[in-house]
Design a protein around this nucleic acid. Sequence first.
DNA 1: CCCGTTTTCTGGAATGAGTCAAGAATAAGC
DNA 2: GCTTATTCTTGACTCATTCCAGAAAACGGG
Lengths: 143, 143
Amino acid sequence: MPATLDFEQMLREAALRVTRPRVAVLGAVLAHPHADTDSIIGAVRRGLPEVSHQAVYDSLQALTTAGLVRRFRPAGSVARYESRVGDNHHHMVCRSCGLIADVDCAVGDAPCLTASDGNGFAIDEAEVVYWGLCPGCSTAGSS
Amino acid sequence: MPATLDFEQMLREAALRVTRPRVAVLGAVLAHPHADTDSIIGAVRRGLPEVSHQAVYDSLQALTTAGLVRRFRPAGSVARYESRVGDNHHHMVCRSCGLIADVDCAVGDAPCLTASDGNGFAIDEAEVVYWGLCPGCSTAGSS
DNA sequence: CCCGTTTTCTGGAATGAGTCAAGAATAAGC
DNA sequence: GCTTATTCTTGACTCATTCCAGAAAACGGG
């Protein structure tokens, strides 16, 4: 688990100013993958009780723009953030309990980018969300 | 283009009560694929000026549950509705102008459902969103 | 065709994630 | 240590969506 110094390093490498809120936000996202904004605010305030929600929103925006974290928003849910960036993995969402799990796409590095012609669009990202039931809910429902 | 009588038929077959607002909402979604709720309210009110926004929300909910329309919510946008149901096509969204286009998945009927093991999830749907630039914005930006 | 029951619609208020704005605080460079 | 540009605090605000209670309308049986 990376330490505060590592977070500072990451921020500096991304040409971002190193501030307490940003370090805390980055740490929170690293520690709680798929967390929503509210959870992140809570996690950050455990270490820095005085941060405003605005600072968290701003930091998340900055980190997202810099590519240090990824924002993702499954339909019917609020925005969530994760630290796995660079690889192009996708997500599975449980319809019952909302559990989110990472999935590496089976199709290699550029999953489903085989959208063929694509109506002339210049596609730069394919976002895939799998909907279903997680193991727990699946078992519970089949009884 | 289907007439009002067809819409009534569709509603009855879905075991839904036939009401003026519902017929109008169904017609609006059929006529304006990918329309957001506000546009649908506007379209409906062209024929029925008195409908409340709540009736439209309720109708859309009922139609979605019944499987007559599909709700889809790209990140950073409000809810949108479309009438292509049953086939599993996906969407392309232009990052610049927000244009949405349908895409038939290149992988056949069950696109990307090859999520392999899937961590034990029972997957029932794969939702794919392609992000990029539409032909218009792509050309404009490359000058 | 009329009635009663049940579902749906109207109108209005409330919720809540996210955004905007102005001034105070703080990080980075010299 | 000082200056300046960026970031944070505070608090108000937007706006899609939901909640609620009473009025209206649709369906089935008489």
